[in-house]
């Protein structure tokens, strides 16, 4: 019979908890890349030349239809060979999850813009607004509100995915748990610790996003 051992927790919690900043770094790094690139790609997918739109669709499909873990491994082991450089595990992890997030956020952005609807474009254009002013003053302000909830949800997903970088040796929460587990053979205590730390972080994130969502709800005509 396996006996729960509080001693393991007391002894190793500080070590595992020191992964928190790394988990946050990976998460927010990926979110930053995802938001900036996602918005740019999303806008281009509604406005750019057809050839550009097609190329971007390929990018989006590529990242949405392969596992994130495969993308992470690919950026760590394969891409350096293609580029003839070394990429550290932290950078590879952030870039891989960041690009994956960008693919999803670009779809959120595009969907938000398309969802505002043809009739708003007609109204703006019929008043003589240029395409650019129509986008800036009429479509985007409405689209932005539609994007908030799914994007906030995406942030929570990214925080969960950040644990995957443990696979390439980034010392975030899960990876530090693995290290302790190998030394102590106390998987129950160790992974409970890991799970509880993630639970606290992700619950905090979810709460924060719920507040943001309440503040930014779509307007109805």
């Amino acid at each position: 019979m396996y006996e729960w051992n509080w001693q393991t927790i007391a002894e190793y919690l500080p070590f595992v908890a020191r992964g928190i900043p790394m988990t946050l770094l990976v998460s927010f790094g990926a979110i930053a890349i995802g938001v900036i690139l996602g918005v740019v790609i999303g806008l281009l997918r509604t406005m750019a030349w057809p050839a550009v739109q097609r190329a971007l669709l390929w990018f989006v499909e590529l990242f949405r239809n392969t596992p994130v873990l495969v993308q992470i491994v690919y950026f760590y082991y394969a891409v350096p060979l293609l580029l003839q450089t070394k990429i550290g595990p932290l950078q590879a992890g952030i870039v891989a999850i960041g690009l994956n997030t960008a693919a999803y956020i670009s779809e959120i952005v595009r969907g938000g813009i398309v969802g505002v609807g043809r009739s708003q474009v007609d109204a703006a254009r019929s008043l003589g607004l240029s395409k650019l002013d129509t986008m800036r003053k009429v479509i985007l302000p409405q689209a932005a509100r539609r994007m908030v909830a799914p994007t906030a949800n995406m942030f929570v997903v990214v925080m969960k995915e950040s644990a995957l970088v443990s696979y390439i040796g980034v010392a975030e929460i899960l990876h530090r748990g693995d290290v302790v587990q190998v030394q102590t053979f106390r998987p129950l205590e160790v992974y409970t610790m890991v799970a509880v730390l993630f639970l606290l972080l992700i619950t905090g994130m979810t709460r924060l996003m719920a507040m943001v969502e309440r503040r930014w709800t779509p307007v109805a005509e």
Binding site: L127, D133, P141, V219
Partner: peptide, 30 residues
């Protein structure tokens, strides 16, 4: 298009702008 105005069956007001802003947007911009 500023000289040939159109009003639609379903109004197509800009829902994120106040009534006044709906009326001021195009005259200032265009």
């Amino acid at each position: 298009r500023t000289r040939v105005g159109i009003v639609f069956q379903h109004f197509n007001l800009f829902p994120h702008l106040s009534v006044m802003e709906n009326l001021v947007l195009a005259p200032t911009l265009v």
